[in-house]
Simulated assay, not measured.
Amino acid sequence: MAPRGEQDVLSGGSRGVAPQPPRSAAGRLAVAIKEFVLVAAMAITLSFVVKTFLIQPFFIPSESMESTLVKNDRVIVSKLTPGPFPLQRGDVVVFADPGDWLPPTPVTDAGPVMNGVRKALTFVGLYPDTSEGHLIKRVIGLPGDKVECCDDKGRLMVNGVSIDEPYVKDGQKPSESDFSITVPQGELWVMGDNRGDSSDSRFHDPSGNGSDGSVPISLVVGKAEALVWPIDRLTRLGDHPDTFTKVPAAGVITLGRATPSGEPETDGS
């Protein structure tokens, strides 16, 4: 007769533990549904957290940023700027309408079910925001900057330094209208890359001094980091630091006329 311990091993388990009966098909289905719901809930929660604090997709609603972005492109916007990372001249930013910049937008009705699904997916970040109530432009002036149009070569000037802007749409001038403004503290001067067809800071500044057309930084949703759709145009959106590298800090104005290289040309005195 085998020892008691050996009997336990040969029987396939510890003494007193009965083998579990196999689950029925209905039981397996219930477990699978439970696991699916748990995974879906985790995915939706994670997506909502990412959309709220890190990144969010947006549709491009107009032609104002051509040729960098065209209508119906989709971009990924980082919500870490402004925040842990500061805004810089040249950044492409998405911001809420400061007030009457946008005309009333007709709501596309896809039926109650699809409208609800789209709103829910947009809320949790699984569907790109349609950009209704938001605009996308490029930062040209930071708080305290003096932005002017234009020098004798038709270029914008920031703090007295002329800048060459490779992102401006081919065939467009840096600005059709002359202006000279100082960006208020806590705000930004923004312009579209399609300068001839962009209702930007220039066109919302009736005061002519920057106080009306500048955008409060508090309205900035984030910085557009990458063009992600259509896939054949997938690219990172640069801030063109070379354009602004010679521009002095806000509040510092160079003397004399800017040369083509961007260096100020003094009068020799």
Rank of each mutant, 00 (worst) to 15 (best):
N159W: 12
L10V: 15
S207L: 04
R257H: 14
T45F: 13
L234A: 11
D129M: 07
P128E: 03
T245N: 07
P260H: 11
H240D: 02
M65I: 10
N72Y: 13
V77N: 01
P216E: 02
R74A: 08
F53L: 14
D242I: 02
G196V: 13
A224L: 12
L46K: 02
P3K: 10
K169H: 09
R74D: 02
A110P: 14
L10K: 12
S131V: 10
V75Y: 05
D232R: 01
T45D: 06
K173A: 15
I140Y: 12
G256C: 07
R233W: 10
G154V: 12
I60F: 07
V158R: 02
L142Y: 00
P98W: 01
V37F: 02
M42S: 13
L121M: 15
K79V: 05
P3R: 05
P184Y: 01
P19M: 14
A25M: 14
M1I: 09
D73L: 08
D242W: 04
S201H: 03
G154F: 09
T259A: 15
S198K: 02
S78G: 01
V9M: 10
T108R: 11
Q88K: 14
Q20D: 09
S201V: 04
C150W: 01
K79D: 03
Q56I: 01
G125Q: 10
R118Q: 14
K119N: 12
K34D: 15
D197V: 10
F58N: 01
S11H: 13
W189H: 00
D91E: 11
V17E: 11
S47T: 11
G5Q: 06
D164W: 04
L10E: 15
V17T: 07
K246M: 09
M1G: 04
V247G: 08
F123Y: 10
C149L: 08
D205K: 10
F59Q: 14
A30T: 13
A40C: 09
A18E: 08
T108S: 12
A25R: 14
R138I: 03
M65G: 02
G186W: 12
G196S: 13
L10W: 12
G90H: 09
T130W: 00
T68A: 00
P264C: 06
V183F: 04
I140V: 13
K169Q: 14
N209Y: 09
R4F: 10
D100R: 11
A250R: 05
S214K: 00
K246R: 10
S214G: 04
L87Y: 13
D178R: 07
S175C: 13
I44C: 08
N194R: 03
L87Q: 05
